[in-house]
Simulated scan of single mutants.
Amino acid sequence: MSTGSVPRPRRPPVLPGVAALGLARTRYEVRTFFRERDAVIFIFAYPVIMLAIFATVFGSDGSSVDVGSTSIPFAQYFLPGMVATGVMLSSFQNLAISIAVERDEGGLKRLRATPLPAASYFVGKVGQVLTSSLLQVVLLLLVARLLFDVPLPESAGRWATFAWVFVLGTATGSVCGVAFSSLPRSGRSASAVVTPVVLVLQFVSGVFFQFDQLPAWMQHAAALFPLKWMAQGMRSVFLPDEAAALEPTGTWQHGLTAVVLLGWLAGALVLGVRTFRWRRRDDG
């Protein structure tokens, strides 16, 4: 009689963790993003083109922004606003539209039926935004330095300020984009719903004009939204210290910038958790 050993039951395979899946999803999202050539060209080229237009139009006669005895070339003055608006395009506008389209096409519904954790999906989206935003900012700074001779910061403190404003602004824009993506009724209407919001915020937040020359009521309205604070934070990086006199309070208000951005980040996170939909409105 055979007394062979009884085979041991196989252990179920161990699935990767949320972080590992999020990293894998980031790589997928980055590849997918760069395959959308129209969106990539617009997001990367828009801040560069706008900087070139404003620097050429306003600085063609050699005029500049004067602060006491300091003169700031228009290209240098508008660079921080272009950096801030580039971050908003890569984060808020990109995610608000792309997620709405994915939902409308049924991609989110199919993805929800897989073992991929929801957290890994959102980590992938934020990772893609950080990657594209960083590449976009590098391109914009290179153009500003090489074509318009804009001086870049030389102190480590200014670059440290740039780092936290960039990271916090990107995270805030990304979470706001995810939350806002539930508002469009369909993927086809997403661009029509999101783009006007972005344009209005750019006009009132000191991106296209000197912020101190805007009407007081417009300045107060802009202070309610994160783009104004991202632009102000970036101005503190790329403009001389004397330029703080052009701000409403005469200071850069770094602490308040962080508080406002964190407040929007937290509020959008709560709203997104409560309202995010994996299915279309007509799909139950």
Rank of each mutant, 00 (worst) to 15 (best):
F74P: 01
R37W: 15
T195L: 15
V178P: 00
L139R: 03
A39C: 06
R11S: 14
G157I: 07
E36I: 07
L111P: 05
S90P: 00
A221C: 09
P16H: 12
S90E: 03
A179D: 04
L21F: 07
L271G: 09
L147R: 10
A192Q: 12
L141G: 01
P215C: 12
L168Y: 03
L141Y: 04
S191K: 13
G157S: 15
A113L: 12
F78M: 03
V237T: 11
V197I: 14
D149S: 15
L141F: 06
R31W: 12
L227A: 03
G173C: 07
V175A: 05
V65M: 07
A179N: 04
P16R: 04
G206Q: 05
F122A: 09
F208H: 10
L23G: 09
F276C: 07
A216Q: 08
Q253P: 03
S132D: 04
V101H: 04
I72E: 03
L269Y: 14
F209T: 00
L199K: 09
P248I: 01
Q213T: 09
A190D: 11
W252C: 00
W264R: 00
L214A: 05
S2H: 14
L271M: 13
R274K: 14
G59S: 09
T32K: 08
L15V: 13
H220K: 15
R103V: 08
F208P: 00
A144G: 06
T56L: 13
T170C: 10
L134D: 02
E29M: 06
R188H: 14
S64Y: 04
G267S: 11
S133R: 04
P47S: 11
R185C: 08
R10M: 15
A20W: 03
F166D: 00
V101L: 07
A160E: 06
R281I: 02
T170P: 02
V260N: 01
V193N: 09
T161Y: 02
V143N: 08
P115R: 11
D38K: 15
R27G: 13
W159N: 06
A268V: 02
L89W: 01
F58P: 00
L21Q: 12
F208V: 02
R274T: 09
S189I: 11
W159E: 07
S133G: 12
S191G: 15
E36W: 12
V178N: 03
V198P: 08
L262H: 02
R185E: 13
T249V: 11
P80E: 02
I43V: 14
S64T: 06
M230V: 15
R188N: 13
L111S: 12
L146G: 06
F78T: 03
A52G: 11
